[in-house]
Design a protein around this nucleic acid. Sequence first.
DNA 1: TTGTATGCGTTATCAT
DNA 2: ATGATAACGCATACAA
Lengths: 329, 329
Amino acid sequence: MNQTKTSPTMKDVAQEAGVSLGTVSKVVNGISVGEEYYRRVQAAIEKLDYRINSYAKGLKSNKTFTIAVMVPNLINPFFSQLVDAINRELAAKNYRMLFYATDYDPKLEQRLVQLAEQQKVDGIICLSYNPELKVSEGVPFVSIDRYFGGNIPCVSADNYGGGRLAAEKLAENGCRNVAFMRVGSHLTNEPNKRKDGFVSGCEALGIPCTLKITGDDTPISVFEDFLREHFRDGKLEFDGIFCVTDYLAHQIIGILSSMGLQVPEDVQVIGFDGIRAFGDQELTCSTIIQPIEAIASSCVEMVLGTQLIKAPSLLCLPISYGFGGTTKA
Amino acid sequence: MNQTKTSPTMKDVAQEAGVSLGTVSKVVNGISVGEEYYRRVQAAIEKLDYRINSYAKGLKSNKTFTIAVMVPNLINPFFSQLVDAINRELAAKNYRMLFYATDYDPKLEQRLVQLAEQQKVDGIICLSYNPELKVSEGVPFVSIDRYFGGNIPCVSADNYGGGRLAAEKLAENGCRNVAFMRVGSHLTNEPNKRKDGFVSGCEALGIPCTLKITGDDTPISVFEDFLREHFRDGKLEFDGIFCVTDYLAHQIIGILSSMGLQVPEDVQVIGFDGIRAFGDQELTCSTIIQPIEAIASSCVEMVLGTQLIKAPSLLCLPISYGFGGTTKA
DNA sequence: TTGTATGCGTTATCAT
DNA sequence: ATGATAACGCATACAA
């Protein structure tokens, strides 16, 4: 005889309290009502353990207090830490986070953006790998690390400055012949500027710099081949290497080690991102540290803010150098 | 004069197609309608770029295709990998993931559960640190690593077996005097069984085992003190250490190294979890590997399944041993 | 088969 | 200040 226990609604509360629906709504939303009414409604809410139905509220008010966050995955610690930071910012502002993994797949990413729009999110924060992403103008969109053009705000670290800083640090530590290594997308996303900054820095410092840039799906072994080509008589031609990410730096260090080379004695390595072991332990290598918290809070402020129009279209946040044992102290 | 661009609704589509609301609904939901009607509706949908409003749908149908996932944070790689895996499982089944970080805070966790319930999620998957968590019976709830009792299903790795396996592996590799180390909660959650399994394994193998278990907020230095107490004449009393997590193992290895001890030559270390550098590179230490994918898919199946009643209340998934350089091969 | 009408739980606009 | 009522966008039972 018992119908499936359905949660109490405002109507139930109104009946229990002997007041009208509108009055309950006011109490729930903190609008002033008569003393006695307030008491009765509160009592009824307690008694029935009433909770507001956010779907009904969202439908009516066209506001869901939900933000979609999209990055390729949560395996890469840079992504997971970024998402963690964004989530904290959102939670502090009483927003919920709907998470979507894009898997570096442009088409999937596009589908997910549409899905999020259906989901009536109040905004989207996306670290995109789809340069042609289409996003409805109705929903605020903030991009991380990929600049789409004037009307879509983009937040990123100062990648160019980071590249320069890497060059300077290697030079400071005595490097005279360096290499830059990058794997991955040909896309003109922000991280490309790491190379530009590095090259520019090397030029300014008068240090020769060799680039090794591979395509998206090339195996890591091409870097080993490259390094062996520049390896003569037990000595590597380079005394410093700047890798586009800590992840790559980690792999390169493994290769160097397998070649019998010592880091940082024989060759110094600088990565980019600022990844720490287990998320909060020591840096995994000497690196250019991205201001993850600042990126996260900027994204959240921009996506929630109403000043999207006036927002700068490209927000560039300061980086810093972190010693992680793979450079000479 | 332009009102704020509001998304087209079914009504708009109906009008555009010259059919009724119900017909549009049927087309959208894949219910068969007349050929001509179907065409007209599809055309209108395309033209207006209509997307179903999931809030209206959710309100009406009491189903939101959204699952709440709660873990302490996304910094710890075990958590972020778990959430990544859960999200993949959910996405494959066309469910969305609402993510909440509990920060190891029992009261926050309780609030978030209520929040998720208001949010009308279709279920909750939670790695809880609140043994007294109250959850409404209306919402399917699956726990990871904490057993709440018969009516709440719990999924976890075979922690006890993992403890035993660690003992066996240390014994196999010649250890004759071992230690177990654990930091953290006094709570009787599943990971406690790692100790029990280890102790039991040591007893069965006739190996003396010393326990060092600290409280939640004790600094890591107590382990250093402990180790120094068992350090005489440049030699450690133990030749094997089992740490309750890879995270702790990492820290212990650092301490051992600072004491001038070699791992694994002087002392072998086994952790628990199976954390890899950068999420997908080499294991950070020799370890008992948790079946993260299996845990994730089990959780999702259980939370979505209707057979919650019949589900076993405690699902225990098999672990395996992984060599990570901190034991003798 | 297709159209119409009602209700999901809220909010907001009205009279009262 | 409070109560009745319409509307949000959709699903569905019912009537045509």
